[in-house]
Design a protein around this nucleic acid. Structure first.
Length: 309
DNA sequence: AAGTCGGGGAT
DNA sequence: ATCCCAGACTT
């Protein structure tokens, strides 16, 4: 649950899981649907499937013990258990000397060592991992790892680190050099370019929906969805994300935008044509895929026309 | 090495 | 509006 998810967000789900699946056997014998239902709202649902598979595997092969020479490798071999999770369980649950390297620790290490390495580069990860292993308190590896992550989450935060309250600022090379805010170095994401947008009006069972499909290089490409009510209500307001709707009198249009991710730059490149507006009704706030539309018997019709560049 | 998966909080 | 999160897996 803690993979890419804040502790506070995971806690209620964790407690619900212990209620629903109090033992390894209970989880292993549960239906996958029940596991996914309990996970619903947490996101990254492959984590739930992997957790379920791991429980099944562990219930057959047994749970790794601290005495096992290959305890770390056993953990690493479970579905959904990568370098971070294997090190976290090995150190916290089994007391074994494996340093964790997550987003928080990477930030702390990069600053303490004033290391300008790009964080996604394999060489940087290896270097940070080696330093974390050197720093690790081998008598209390679990506590050390949690302390490193907590330091990153509460003091050595991304935007404005609280160096005055930091227990290790005396040893921090990044702080000494005054570059703590520049670290860690991250690669800028590639530009995402929106190339077209199709828009159709879908009439079904007396209700009228506006359905759009973004033809982009992003992950929305090819998906049909219902526009959010908030965007429709925004009318001539500020743009949101990569396209907006405008409604004036009895017509509507869609504006298409260039977007860059992680670069704070949104550049307007085209405005859609004005087309007649049907009665919109009360639009649901939801996002659905083309597949889901078909399952509901709401096959999207032929697009009325493509708008944009 | 790059892309994908999500919901939510902080700034 | 953007960034980031106690990452892992596939391509």
């Amino acid at each position: 649950m803690l993979q890419q998810t804040r502790v506070e967000a995971a806690i209620p789900y964790f407690e619900k899981f212990l209620q629903l699946f109090p033992t390894l056997r209970a989880l292993a014998e549960a239906e996958e649907n029940a596991v996914l239902a309990a996970w619903s709202g947490l996101g990254y649902y492959s984590r739930a499937r992997n957790l379920h598979k791991a429980a099944k595997k562990l219930s057959v092969e047994g749970i790794p013990a601290a005495q096992d020479r290959d305890a770390f490798d056993q953990l690493r071999g479970l579905p959904g258990v990568g370098p971070y999770t294997a090190a976290a369980v090995a150190s916290i649950a089994l007391g074994l000397p494996h340093a964790v390297l997550d987003g928080n620790v990477m930030r702390v290490i990069s600053r303490v060592a004033a290391d300008p390495g790009e964080v996604s580069a394999p060489g940087t990860r290896r270097r940070f991992g080696e330093l974390a292993d050197q720093l690790l308190d081998r008598r209390r590896p679990g506590d050390f790892n949690q302390a490193m992550m907590e330091l990153g989450a509460t003091v050595c935060v991304p935007r404005s680190p609280a160096c005055a309250e930091c227990p290790v600022s005396r040893f921090c090379a990044g702080r000494a050099a005054g570059i703590e805010r520049e670290l860690p170095v991250k690669k800028r994401a590639a530009e995402v370019r929106e190339v077209a947008l199709e828009l159709v009006v879908l009439q079904q069972a007396g209700e009228v929906f506006l359905v759009r499909r973004a033809e982009t290089e992003s992950r929305l490409a090819g998906f049909w969805e219902l526009p959010e009510k908030r965007r429709m209500a925004g009318l001539a307001g500020a743009p949101q994300k990569s396209f907006t709707h405008q409604i004036v009198n009895d017509r509507f249009r869609v504006n298409v935008w260039h977007t860059r991710r992680r670069n704070t730059k949104t550049e307007r490149i085209a405005e859609g044509r004005w087309v007649p507006l049907c009665a919109l009704g009360d639009l649901p706030v939801t996002t659905i895929t083309k597949k889901a539309l078909q399952a509901l018997g709401l096959d999207p019709p032929i697009p009325s026309r493509a708008v944009g560049v």
